[in-house]
Design a protein around this nucleic acid. Structure first.
Length: 519
RNA sequence: GGGCCCGUAGCUCAGUUGGUUAGAGCUGGCCGCUCAUAACGGCUAGGUCGCGGGUUCGAGUCCUGCCGGGCCUACCA
């Protein structure tokens, strides 16, 4: 199968339960994965959890458990959530997986063989939370006079032997890479990264001796790798690195690393540098999406406004959540969400506009045509509507999804839905029923064709609901790709098969805002 | 401290390289329809385009200062 497509999400740090941001990123990746499959590409989609590091070790210690126990439980919570969200990952990777340790050691050895790793000694202030070292001068004073990092996180004095990576050696190549159109999006991030590099790169400390929860450095068992070295490596672990093989040949370099805007630097500076050092190709694109705000405010434990994605799924269903996040938020920018906004948007666009369009149409076909379809000749108005729908479904939406402009693509789709509803009103098939039954049939079946296109187009976003619609229409499960939109023969085949439309069931019932919703 | 972004109708936002009456969706109001999930369609709501200057025949769209919000980065006190 031609045209492979490899997409990854960041692997999530499971020192707590998954929050809305994890759901958002992974849903977006899944929409892309499903979209590319419908476009006929062979997709490999990987997500997972990043389980090493001092933060995990500390968290486990605080809970009186082993890091592994904590990792197992939390990673499980992530996997469970992603399964509920209908995420079609091909691999859920865990950095504690045996093959991942092997891959991490291999890339380490490749960098070492290149002469890019050297052992040195480090003394200074270290912030566990930031996983970073700070200069004495950078520190600020806390309320109680304690020393804090510039970010306000606690720091502790550390003296250790550590491995360094010759990051500065790759500065020129990295700038060149960052200037490559399409490598880093949104482009607004590009200047920041270039400025960071041109401000002078320091060699990167890439190992720790102060704890042992991580991947051991080859030949130096007292060192574990800096979490980012092993975390980033997950992207190639999942393809069989270092052994190579069919999957490796087919899918590396990745088409897209989808990540949050906060970790753009790790993915567009450190990661490419590691790969260059190991003589491996760099990823084709890194996209840093925005954050979701809860009514415009950042969620945090201290603010007590953390949303459990599972709760949203319980209340509103998976597809509603998926639709809202992809349609409401301009991809790449921060977005705001609330239960009210979700209910309003989903009810207006999915239930009232699209769902009801399908319901009223199928209901009329069921009642007035005994559910039977027949060949017909569309007139000018019918053709005009179908052209609008086809344009939105087969041209605009795919074009926008290809460039990750989901909200724009969905908007075009919605415009086509509006056109269908306006068409129903103009044609008034309920009146034609008495005056011109043949014409009524043509109108209803024109709508039938339109709904099929619309349902096919929106599948990546609302996979379960759209397939429910397509099932009711009688569209074969192997006739639902974007290529099938251009198939002119499917309706005739459906008629010939004698398909009968049953009494329809609303695919997108209206949502209700729970009473418990406060403020 | 340096660099960058944002602030457009009640809400969420579009606004190409500056050019006739500044747009969309939601909400509100009015009218129509009754097939449908009390859903649909049409009309409408008249906003100093954050504030003050400037360039220009003409600026939301360029320059500058200020206010407010955000981001990246930095060893000066």
């Amino acid at each position: 199968m031609a045209d492979p497509y490899y997409i990854t999400t960041a692997i999530h740090y499971p020192n707590g339960k998954p929050h809305i941001g994890h759901a958002y990123e992974t849903i977006a990746a899944d929409v892309i994965a499903r979209f590319q499959r419908l476009m006929g590409r062979e997709v490999r989609f990987q997500t997972g959890t990043d389980e090493h590091g001092l933060k995990m070790a500390h968290k486990a210690r605080d809970l009186g458990r082993t890091p592994r126990e904590l990792a197992d439980e939390m990673s499980g919570a992530f996997k469970e959530l992603f399964d509920r969200l209908d995420i079609t990952y091909d691999r859920f990777i865990r950095t504690t997986d045996e093959d991942h340790h092997k891959a991490s050691r291999a890339i380490w050895q490749a960098m070492e063989a290149k002469g890019d790793l050297y052992l040195d000694r480090y003394e200074g202030w270290y912030s566990v939370r930031d996983e970073a070292y700070y200069d004495e001068k950078e520190l600020i004073e806390g309320e109680a006079g304690e020393k804090l990092s510039p970010q306000g996180t606690p720091v502790e004095w550390t003296e250790e032997e550590t491995w360094f990576f010759r990051l500065s050696k790759y500065a020129d190549q990295l700038v060149e890479l960052l200037n490559k159109p399409g490598f880093l999006e949104p482009v607004s991030r590009r200047n920041e990264m270039i400025a960071f590099i041109e401000g002078g790169l320091k060699d990167l400390s890439v190992s720790r001796t102060s704890f042992d929860w991580g991947v051991k450095v080859p030949g130096h068992d007292n060192h574990v790798m800096y979490v980012w070295v092993d975390a980033l490596t997950n992207y190639i672990t999942g393809l069989g690195y270092p052994d190579g093989g069919e999957m490796w040949d087919k899918f590396w370099p990745a088409n897209l690393h989808l990540i949050g805007k906060d970790i753009v630097r790790f993915h567009t500076v450190y990661w490419p540098a590691f790969l260059m050092s190991a003589d491996l190709p760099v990823p084709q694109k890194v996209f840093g999406h925005g954050f979701l705000l809860n009514r415009g405010v950042k969620e945090s434990k201290s603010a007590g406004n953390v949303t459990d994605p599972n709760e949203l799924v319980d209340l509103f269903g998976v597809d509603s959540l998926r639709y809202f996040l992809m349609a409401e938020v301009v991809f790449g920018k921060d977005g705001s969400y609330s239960a009210e906004a979700l209910v309003n948007k989903v009810n207006a666009e999915l239930a009232n506009s699209f769902g009801n369009l399908a319901q009223r149409t199928l209901s009329m076909i069921h009642k007035n045509m005994d559910g039977k379809l027949e060949d017909f000749s569309p007139n000018g108005e019918d053709k005009s509507l179908l052209a609008i729908v086809r344009e939105a479904c087969n041209v605009t939406l795919p074009k926008e999804f290809e460039t990750l402009n989901f909200s724009v693509g969905i908007e075009a789709w919605l415009k086509a839905v509006f056109a269908c509803n306006a068409y129903v009103d103009e044609q008034a098939p309920w009146a034609l029923k008495k005056t011109d039954p043949e014409r009524m049939k043509a109108v209803l079946q024109t709508l039938f064709l339109a709904i099929r296109d619309l349902a096919i187009a929106i599948q990546p976003v609302v996979p379960t609901k759209s397939s429910a619609v397509l099932d009711q229409l009688g569209v074969k499960s192997d006739g639902r790709s974007y290529a099938d939109l251009s198939d002119e023969g499917w309706f005739t085949a459906l008629v010939a098969a004698g398909h009968v439309i049953d009494k329809p069931v609303p695919a997108f019932p209206r949502l209700e805002l729970p009473e418990t919703e406060d403020s």
